[in-house]
Computed example of a mutant assay.
Amino acid sequence: MVTLDFKVLTEPVGIVRILEVIFTCITFSLVGSVGYSTDSFWMWCLFSWCFCFCVTLLILVLELTSLNTKLPLSWQDFITAFAMLASLMVLVASVIYSVFFTCSVCGRQIGASVTSYLTLILYTMEVGMIRSKPGEISGFLSTVPGLLKVLETFVACVIFICVRYFNYWVFPGLQWCVAVYSICFIYSFLIIIFTIGRLLALFPAPLNKVLTVCNVLAVLMYLTAVVIWPVYAFRNNPRPNCPSVRSCAWNLLVVISFMTSLNLAAYIADTIYSLKLVFITGETQTRPA
């Protein structure tokens, strides 16, 4: 039986979500009113705003009707993971659109960029509101390591989008880098899916220790990719004279190098939190009073 709970619309996080729906709607409406483009960057921006609008509206409806309590998933983990993902998607969309598609006399494009950055602030606020605080009992994705898992997965997706423009299979070194991105992406993505689906309890081994080992391996693998990718990608490959920033595929090599370093930093932070959880927290819990 459906029961309406209007309290979710008047709570601070509910108000933030309503504003997210409004601003994402305004953003993709302004972009759409300018005209349609087949540019992949333009399509990514529009998809990001539309996706965030639809999922945020769905979350509001499910919580308003209390149907979220009947879903076979960890709702807190789901909304936290989505808020983090939406923040990252809107961040990338805001930067890309403001750099590539705005000009000093493009009023609607400037307006779309402004509302997109305001949307980014709102989603960042939501992450801060719903993530777990010290001493609280909540889902894994509401913690810092859980949010880092979402970041690691998203960064890997950005790398995959950029890698497809290059013949990486020509060089064994680049093949290894793509293998690193793929293996670590699958690992982080499965952790997110298992957490949201409440399947972690079925794992036969101590999860904290397994996560720590996998994080250490991911750090070691990304360390090799941070070194190997620039060596193979930029060796005998200077930047060409491109007519514009958007049309220069060489810039994507720089993006991949930066994203590889960013993911390395994320996995290092994730490993530190995991080690702290396994060894420091575990030692405190087992220490006799």
Rank of each mutant, 00 (worst) to 15 (best):
A205P: 00
Y232M: 05
G282R: 05
A249M: 15
L252S: 13
T115L: 11
L147Y: 02
E283K: 15
P12V: 11
E152Q: 11
S257Y: 07
I137N: 09
D270E: 08
R287N: 14
N167W: 08
P172N: 10
V210I: 00
L262R: 10
K276H: 09
W176S: 07
P243S: 10
S87W: 12
I137S: 12
N208P: 01
N237L: 05
A289Y: 13
G107A: 12
R198L: 05
L85D: 07
V61K: 11
F41N: 10
V180I: 06
I159V: 15
V178L: 06
I159A: 07
K70F: 14
A201S: 09
V16M: 14
V21T: 13
V231D: 00
V216I: 15
V219I: 12
A83E: 10
P206S: 03
N167I: 07
L151F: 14
S261C: 15
E63D: 10
L4R: 04
S37I: 02
I59A: 02
V254Q: 11
R17G: 10
I137E: 10
I121Q: 08
F41W: 12
Y222L: 05
L58R: 06
I192P: 00
F189V: 04
G14N: 10
N251A: 14
P12W: 13
S40N: 08
L122N: 00
V99N: 12
V92P: 04
